[in-house]
Amino acid sequence: MVGLFPVILAFIARIQLKDSDEFHALQEQRQNQEKETIKTKVPLLALFQTPAMTWQTVALTLMMMVHTGGYYGLMNWLPKIMQKQLGLSISSSNLWMVATIVGMSLGMYFFGHILDKFGPRFSYTFFFIMAAISLYTLLLAKNAWSLILIMMVVGFFSNGMYGGYGVIVSRLYPAEYRVTANSVVSSVGKVLGGFFPPIIGLLMDKYSLAAVMIFFSLIYLFALVIMLLIPALKKTNVEF
């Protein structure tokens, strides 16, 4: 029943929101054609048609990889790490998992406003840096309640920028294949991010919690550098 609530919100939003004029123009153009070509239906190669476009697609995919890998690490490994560190019960982990998800949701809400006002370079730079820093606050947790507050902050910054990927992909690719671009960036990035949990498991097995925190910080800083190297995001005529 709780899961139906966001579905209803999405349905209401779809009724109220209107597609862009660019999308309607493309839709009308397609309807006027006698039939669609294979390239129009699946313009996968269009995402790699130039060196600049290829780098843009690869860079966005790597950003999604880091984001997904960080999420999997937070949700799969950190509860077990903190249970061991603080000697907490398994039942109490549900509470800070919920707190993390609440923090993530709030982070996405505020990230959207920051993205609209300041653009992608500032927004992602701020959130990536804060995600790298906020992880170390876990070392300050002394009990279950302090852990709940810290996990909300960590979730806020580590997952807040998720809502921006669909937006920047839609702005950086032409309307006729932005859906394909979103699918490639999201799907490939999540597959690659799925390899992060075993890496974190190996770090846990051989090193300390500090090593895991350093790994998380480095991957967020890596994503930051990748984002700053996307030429299209430097343009002032990209509206968000």
Rank of each mutant, 00 (worst) to 15 (best):
28 E>A: 15
147 L>P: 03
37 T>L: 06
118 F>P: 05
184 V>G: 00
221 L>H: 01
43 P>V: 03
167 V>Q: 05
63 M>V: 09
59 A>K: 01
124 Y>V: 02
81 I>L: 09
142 K>H: 08
36 E>Y: 02
102 V>R: 01
117 K>P: 02
197 P>L: 11
180 T>C: 10
202 L>A: 11
85 Q>S: 13
131 A>C: 07
137 T>E: 01
126 F>Q: 04
198 P>C: 07
122 F>I: 15
104 M>N: 02
89 S>H: 11
89 S>W: 07
195 F>V: 13
194 G>Y: 10
152 M>W: 03
212 V>Q: 01
152 M>I: 12
173 Y>S: 04
233 L>M: 15
179 V>M: 11
54 T>I: 07
178 R>Y: 08
123 S>M: 10
27 Q>H: 13
142 K>Y: 08
110 F>C: 11
209 L>S: 12
22 E>R: 10
131 A>G: 04
200 I>M: 13
211 A>F: 12
113 H>W: 09
220 Y>E: 03
217 S>K: 05
33 Q>K: 14
186 S>V: 14
59 A>V: 07
82 M>V: 05
213 M>Q: 07
121 R>Y: 11
65 M>R: 01
56 Q>W: 06
81 I>G: 02
81 I>E: 04
68 T>E: 07
194 G>T: 07
59 A>W: 01
78 L>A: 01
91 S>K: 12
16 Q>W: 14
32 N>F: 02
36 E>G: 07
37 T>Y: 03
95 L>H: 11
42 V>C: 12
38 I>D: 14
164 G>I: 06
220 Y>A: 02
227 M>E: 01
127 F>N: 05
142 K>P: 00
90 I>Y: 14
123 S>A: 13
182 N>F: 08
35 K>W: 06
171 R>E: 15
126 F>H: 06
75 M>L: 12
223 A>H: 03
234 K>G: 15
200 I>P: 00
109 Y>F: 13
65 M>Y: 10
76 N>D: 14
68 T>R: 05
23 F>L: 11
98 V>I: 15
36 E>A: 15
